[in-house]
C-alpha cells in the first residue's frame, strides 16, 4: 500500500469536503474489504482515505409502509441478513445478503461498499487496467482466458462482470440509491447507478469522486409478491458465482401480473432482463414457462470464447429463481 493520509469526519458535509475532485485523490473507507485489497495490489492509490464509519446518519434500517425500507449505507451484510424488518418485507434481500462472501466479510462489508465494489476481472486485479487493453490497443480479455467474463452487454470495451449479488436483488425490488455531494443529496434508481465505462478513466458507477452513498431505499413490495434469489456457484460457500438471478413476481392468483428479472456476474452492470420479464407476464409458472424465461434472459447473450457455458448457467439461474419464487421462494 502506498502512503496516504487518513481522516474520520463526524459529518457528511465534512466527508464530502475531504474527498477529492478527481479519482485518485481520495477514496471512501467503509468496510474496507475491497478497497484495501485494491490498494495492496496498487490498483488504486489514493492520497487520502476518508473513513465514513463515524457518520451516524449513514446507519440504521427503518421501514414504513409508504416509503418502504431505508437502509443506511454503513449497514453490514450481516446486519441486513439478520434484520427482522428486512426479513419480513424483503426476504430475498436478506437471503442475498446472507449468501454473499463469508461471515468475516459480511460482518464488515457494507451495503454502500457492496454497491461500489470494483470488478474482479483478473486482468484488472493484476494491474492491466479496468478495460484490460494491451499496449497495441487490443483487448486482453478477447485474446485470453475469459471464462468468468461477460456474456451480456459485452460489445466492449468493457468485458468484466459486475460483482455484486446484492445489487440485482435490490434492483429487482426497484430500489433507489441516495448520494450526497458538495451540492447536496441526489437520489437515483439503483439500476441507473451502474454504468458501463467506455474509457479507462471512467468508473462503473454514477458516482462522482466527491460523493458518498448515504442510503438505499427499497419500496415496499405489493402484497402477494413472490421473490427469489438464486446463485450458481461451484463451492458450497464463499465462491464467486458464475451467474445469479433475482426474480420478483407480482402475482394475480396463479398468474404473473408483472415480473422483474435481474442477473449478476453476467454483464458489466447488474443486468435487468426485460425479455425474461415479458416472457413471464400473463403466464402461470411451470417448468416450461420458467425455462422460457431463462431462455429469453440469454437470448441476446454471446460468448467471448471461453465463457459460452455461462450462457447456460445464466439461463438455469433465471429458471430456478422463477421456480423457487413460485414455490414461495424467499418471499
Amino acid at each position: 500500500m502506498r502512503a496516504f493520509e487518513y481522516a474520520s469526519p463526524k459529518q457528511k458535509q465534512q466527508a464530502v469536503g475531504l474527498l477529492g475532485q478527481q479519482w485518485g485523490d481520495a477514496e471512501v473507507l467503509a468496510g474496507g474489504s475491497d478497497l484495501l485489497a485494491l490498494m495492496k495490489d496498487d490498483i488504486v492509490h489514493p492520497k487520502r482515505l476518508v473513513n465514513v464509519k463515524e457518520l451516524p446518519e449513514l446507519r440504521g434500517i427503518t421501514f414504513n409502509a409508504s416509503r418502504g425500507l431505508r437502509i443506511g449505507s454503513l449497514m453490514t451484510l450481516s446486519e441486513i441478513s439478520e434484520d427482522a424488518q428486512v426479513k419480513e418485507h424483503h426476504p430475498m434481500l436478506a437471503h442475498a445478503a446472507g449468501e454473499a462472501a463469508s461471515p468475516q466479510i459480511r460482518n464488515v462489508a457494507t451495503i454502500g461498499g457492496n454497491m461500489c465494489q470494483r470488478p474482479r476481472c483478473w486482468w484488472f486485479r493484476n494491474g492491466f487496467g479496468l478495460l484490460a487493453t494491451a499496449p497495441d490497443g487490443k483487448s486482453l480479455v478477447l485474446q485470453g482466458d475469459n471464462r468468468y467474463h461477460a456474456i451480456l452487454g459485452n460489445d466492449g470495451p468493457a468485458y468484466f462482470v459486475s460483482p455484486s449479488s446484492l445489487a440485482p436483488a435490490l434492483i429487482a425490488y426497484n430500489a433507489r440509491i441516495r448520494l450526497f455531494g458538495p451540492k447536496g443529496p441526489r437520489e437515483i434508481p439503483l439500476e441507473k447507478f451502474f454504468v458501463i465505462p467506455k474509457s479507462e478513466n471512467e468508473r462503473e458507477h454514477d458516482l462522482r469522486p466527491n460523493e458518498i452513498v448515504t442510503d438505499v431505499i427499497v419500496p415496499a413490495p405489493p402484497s402477494g409478491v413472490k421473490a427469489s434469489h438464486y446463485e450458481v456457484r461451484q463451492k458450497a460457500a464463499f465462491d464467486w458465482p458464475y451467474a445469479t438471478a433475482s426474480v420478483v413476481l407480482d402475482m394475480n392468483g396463479d398468474t404473473v401480473r408483472s415480473a422483474r428479472v435481474v442477473m449478476s456476474h453476467v454483464a458489466p452492470i447488474p443486468w435487468v432482463s426485460n425479455e425474461a420479464a415479458q416472457a413471464l407476464a400473463g403466464k402461470t409458472i411451470s417448468e416450461q414457462t420458467a425455462d422460457a424465461a431463462g431462455a429469453a434472459a440469454v437470448a441476446n447473450a454471446k460468448s467471448l470464447g471461453r465463457n459460452k457455458y455461462k450462457i447456460k448457467l445464466a439461463h438455469v439461474a433465471v429458471k430456478r429463481a422463477v421456480l423457487q419464487a413460485a414455490k414461495g421462494g424467499q418471499a
Binding site: 481522516a7 459529518q11 469536503g17
Partner: peptide, 29 residues
C-alpha cells in the same frame, strides 16, 4: 490534496484542518 512525500521519519500528531466550518483531524501519511 497535497502530494504524498515518502515516509517522513518524524512522528506527528494529526494535522487539524477546517472543513465546512468544522475542525477535522487528518492523520499521516
Amino acid at each position: 490534496i497535497s502530494a504524498i512525500t515518502t515516509s517522513a521519519p518524524l512522528v506527528l500528531g494529526p494535522t487539524v484542518l477546517e472543513v465546512e466550518g468544522q475542525e477535522v483531524h487528518v492523520f499521516g501519511p
